[in-house]
Design a protein around this nucleic acid. Structure first.
Length: 233
DNA sequence: TGAAAGTCAATAAC
DNA sequence: GTTATTGACTTTCA
């Protein structure tokens, strides 16, 4: 499917304008300090990004955002923090494997912000990304969640030492995958047996199956879509 | 209350 | 240096 199909009637700016063409040719351009970008207040930015939307073609949007970031050499880290108030890893995951709008719940908000950024004129998009908004936002909508701040703050200086991230050994991983192929939803009893056998916490085993189910279904959906696209070509 | 959804953030991969 | 992956935490929902 064409990346920019329906570009003229879906609310997105016409990206074939001369300015866009020049920028795409000079993808190295990254210094916006001398561009005289408009300076919005934090509240104005928030108002722009939080406009309600009834429906968003998430897949199409993500392709456009990816092209925009790549075309202008905008780091994901910057976009993630400035536009959606999320981490780089989360953004990468969302852009690479977007869930369809109808399957989203609270997560719609994140796509809504990406969409609302994308429909702005070029100068506004860059001003939001690189600008230094004045003032504060009256209602703190998308800020990182309270308890998450707690999680983030458990860094140097904190009394509780950070738990190192577990990486499954090859044996553990192989065994877990093997069981998963046979049963995606093992009973608590079975999970306990697996945990004991692999010298893992039951919660770790439970997390593995939870993540595996979610990620497998997402992968299945993606390949289904690809099949459909090939069929309709 | 348990499962699903949303996400963080370390770190693997490029 | 940047992006993708992924185990685990937090929030939402039935």
């Amino acid at each position: 499917m064409d990346l920019y199909h329906n570009i003229y009637d879906d609310g997105f700016e016409d990206q074939r304008d001369p300015e866009y063409e020049i920028l795409m040719e000079n993808a190295q351009v990254q210094d916006f300090s001398d561009m005289n970008l408009p300076n919005y207040t934090a509240q104005a930015v928030e108002d722009m990004l939080s406009v309600e939307r009834d429906y968003i073609d998430t897949k199409d949007l993500c392709l456009k955002i990816l092209a925009e970031l790549k075309g202008h050499n905008i780091p994901q880290e910057l976009f993630a923090t400035r536009i959606i108030s999320r981490s780089q890893g989360t953004l990468s995951d969302l852009l690479g494997k977007p869930k369809p709008w109808e399957m989203l719940r609270a997560g719609r908000n994140t796509f809504k912000r990406m969409y609302n950024w994308m429909v702005q004129p070029y100068e506004t998009r860059m001003a939001i990304l690189f600008g230094d908004p004045v003032g504060t936002v009256a209602v703190s909508t998308p800020s990182p969640r309270n308890k998450r701040n707690k999680r983030q703050s458990s860094s140097p200086g904190d009394s509780a030492p950070k738990k190192p991230r577990l990486v499954f050994t090859e044996t553990q991983k192989n065994a877990l995958v093997k069981v998963f192929k046979e049963t995606e939803r093992p009973s608590s009893k079975m999970q306990k047996v697996i945990a004991d056998h692999l010298h893992l916490d039951v919660s770790t085993v439970n997390n593995f199956f939870m993540n595996a189910r979610r990620r497998r279904h997402r992968a299945a959906r993606t390949s289904e879509e690809q099949d459909q696209e090939q069929y309709f070509q």
